[in-house]
Design a protein around this nucleic acid. Structure first.
Lengths: 272, 272
DNA sequence: TTTAAACTTGAAACAGTTTCTAAAAAATTT
DNA sequence: AAATTTTTTAGAAACTGTTTCAAGTTTAAA
């Protein structure tokens, strides 16, 4: 951690997880930075309108500014415009929750969603939008991992582990790296991932990579997933849903270049 | 412009408006900063994963990182949870577009939306989410201005002007400061704003301030607006819609403290 | 009232940043 | 195809914002 920018952004990243506000000292402790320095940075961020202090001598919390930037970018990027109709259709057809996610650093972030299940038993993502999801244990993550080489998988999982820290293993979560690689290998040949009781106990999901142009050797842009109660994800049903999932992923991949964001991904080599 | 942080955030703010990517030199020109410095900052942002360069020697564009932060914050803040049901109901009742906005710096940003109009003639906000809207010429802005003193209005409008720069006056846009103050005064007594052909020609809208606790003297948290084609916003219809709008705003104000974000706004004095 | 914990502020030492210059690469024009 | 212009990238010295440490305040708790 060297530059001011890095420290400031680390502060913002942490504050994102605590919309209710945080103490200077807590922030400093969690980031292992001197209180005094965090304080200075917070004042600067406050001056710029990204942070505000609640009461004198009180906690600091983010303003709406950062969210406005994020929403503004996403809106203008065209991702939603491109994806929503396709997601809606798949949600309708499957009667489950459908999401489009992209890889951000070492985790997955979903950027569009459609709920196909009527109220009742269903998986609801709640407040998770924009939250980084663990790659090795989620269906979407496994779909993305299946597009990488084993070495790349090992590198990524080496950093993230098999489970998010502090999260208990679900009954079908891969227990070892070998298990994971086996699951990934199966996913490669199958063309889509299958993750029942893997991420959260009682939840079932399947996901397919979204590739540029919608072709099998196109550059990977993200993944499309279907999720719902595990009881509705027996093997037969998943095989029934698979064609729609793969079709939608292909359609998305074909339409993606129309979005500035995905077009940007395309203009560069596969990823560092 | 002094600190690194300020410069870096200015770069990010500008890049938000150009998801397709920007050249170093363009960025430098628009921000009136030395090319070399912008370059350095971009490299740093790239190293941190907020920006990526498309091709070697190519443009720089934002990654999904910033959007993920924004969405994550908004999700966890609870604003959507609180607001969506209320917005949905009002959208249903009015058959128009309903939005909840908050003040960010000198502009309005909407953070939740519900579309009550069936496809056909309707106002659609498109990619505007997260985009700062001009306060003096929009219905929501006028609703917020109506909660300030004339001096505060003058201060704010002094900075923003009567119209967004480069945007032509619509037929009913207040032409002078005096006109605006008169409109604001009427809004105060009426309890909600009325803006037909004011922001965009052919569009009609009305908005009410959302106040903490839902009471008239509560702290202002944001505003709730209804928008649609001007032809559906004759005086009689607006008077008919007013009670639902005001009720919803009150309900929202009463429920707001349950959201971390609004609760944060409450914990501090009315605003600097 | 006393004690503890947290926020705030000041000043000197330090380190990252700025600016200028210039080379290398890419895009345009002739 | 060569020449010209624009743009990106890189290095080094001067500078300025930042870090750190220590001390003063304020607030909350005992």
């Amino acid at each position: 951690m060297s530059s001011v920018l890095e420290k400031s952004l680390a502060i913002l990243e942490l504050m994102v997880e605590h919309p209710e506000g945080m103490q200077v000292s807590t922030l400093a402790r969690k980031l292992d930075m001197p209180v005094s320095g965090v304080h200075r940075t917070l004042r600067e961020l406050a001056r710029l309108g990204y942070v505000r202090q609640e009461r004198d001598q009180g906690d600091y919390a983010l303003t709406i500014r950062l969210a406005a930037m994020g929403l503004g970018f996403l809106g203008r990027s065209g991702v939603t415009d491109i994806a929503q109709p396709i997601l809606d259709r798949l949600a309708q057809a499957s009667g489950e929750l459908v999401r489009l996610s992209v890889l951000d650093g070492r985790g997955l972030v979903w950027v569009a969603v459609a709920q196909g299940a009527t109220v009742g038993l269903r998986y609801d993502p709640g407040r998770e939008q924009g939250v980084r999801v663990h790659p090795a244990s989620s269906a979407g993550g496994q779909a993305l991992l299946s597009t990488m080489t084993d070495d790349e998988v090992l590198a990524l999982v080496g950093e993230t582990g098999l489970r998010p820290e502090g999260m208990a293993k679900a009954s079908a979560t891969p227990a070892t790296i070998a298990d994971l690689l086996k699951v990934i290998a199966e996913t490669r040949t199958r063309g889509y991932s299958v993750a029942v009781n893997t991420y959260i106990e009682g939840m079932g999901a399947m996901a397919a990579p979204v590739r540029a142009g919608g072709v099998a050797d196109g550059q990977v842009l993200g993944c499309l997933s279907i999720a719902g109660p595990a009881v509705r994800f027996p093997k037969a049903r998943m095989e029934e849903l698979a064609p729609s999932l793969l079709d939608a992923a292909a359609e998305l991949g074909a339409a993606a270049p129309a979005s500035h964001f995905f077009a940007g991904l395309l203009r560069q080599p596969p990823t560092p």
